[in-house]
Amino acid sequence: MDPVDVALCLAMDVSASVDFDEFALMAGGTAAALRDPSVLAAATSGPRGAAAICLLLWSGIGERDLAVGWTRLDGPEAAGALAQAIADTPRLPRAGATALGEGMAAGLALLGAFPDATARLVLDVSGDGRHNQGQPPGPVRDLAVDAGITINGLAILNEEPDLLDHYATEVIGGPGSFAMSCADYPDFADAILRKLRRELGGGLLVA
């Protein structure tokens, strides 16, 4: 893969609180966002004209799957192929506890091993629950900050209405980091669209 402006790992919660219909809304919403011209414009707006994206699914300790490996996003054909791969991805990790810190650590390992040059490394965490198993997220976040990696969060509030506070204090960190929320899974597609435009475009605020 040639150098890119940003390497973005999408890390999605597939723990027991996320049923199969909700997972389909997450995957389908992410795929729809990647097909949106504004996301491609953000991904190709940097000097290298490209981003790299992968999809990581996580739940309890040891339950994680690199569902879609690193893929270069540099034009409409690549965006369509990546969107289809995400839309078609099976839910392989077993549903279980919410090992949020473990999922974050797995995403950081993927970013740390990114094989090509990039100006930015970003971890995008989406989920509907607090950490309740394994290593806590705060120390993992601190390691990311020390390494110059940005972690952003999208809190889905259907299970825990105050989850955004947990993401803001325990999950996000690094240059330009931010946390967003959506009320429920039907709202995920709009939220991830706005989030991807902001992440890929270098943290610019997007309405």
Rank of each mutant, 00 (worst) to 15 (best):
A99Q: 04
A99F: 00
G96E: 04
T44I: 08
G80L: 01
I151P: 00
L200N: 09
Y185P: 04
A119P: 02
A117F: 13
H131Q: 13
R141N: 12
A78L: 06
G80S: 04
A51R: 08
R91S: 07
A67H: 07
I172S: 01
P161G: 08
P115F: 05
L108H: 02
D65C: 05
D128K: 03
G80V: 04
T89L: 13
E102P: 00
E170A: 07
T44K: 05
P90Q: 10
G101A: 07
L205S: 12
M1G: 15
D190V: 09
S181D: 15
V125W: 14
A42Y: 00
V18A: 08
P186E: 10
D187C: 10
L40C: 12
R94L: 11
A113D: 15
D65W: 10
I192P: 08
P136F: 08
A85E: 10
S38E: 06
G202A: 02
A52L: 06
R141G: 01
D74I: 09
L121G: 09
L56C: 09
G201W: 00
G127P: 13
L25V: 07
R130M: 13
G138H: 10
R91E: 13
D65G: 11
T30V: 04
E159Y: 12
R198L: 05
D142R: 13
E199G: 14
E160L: 08
M12R: 15
A109R: 14
L157C: 15
E77C: 05
I192G: 03
G96W: 00
H131D: 13
G138D: 14
S38G: 06
I53R: 12
T98H: 04
P115W: 11
A32T: 14
F114M: 04
G127E: 02
D74P: 13
L111S: 00
D13T: 09
D36M: 01
V125A: 12
A31Q: 07
N132A: 02
L164V: 11
D36S: 09
T30F: 02
E102H: 14
V4H: 08
L143A: 15
T118W: 02
R194L: 12
G101N: 01
R197Y: 01
R91C: 08
G75R: 06
P161F: 03
S126C: 09
G103F: 06
G153Y: 11
N158K: 05
S59R: 12
A43C: 07
V6S: 06
G75W: 10
A97G: 11
I172A: 09
G107M: 00
A81P: 09
G80A: 14
G176M: 03
L8A: 11
T150R: 14
N158H: 11
G148W: 12
L100S: 10
E160H: 14
L100N: 09
F20I: 12
R35P: 13
P186D: 03
A11S: 15
M180G: 11
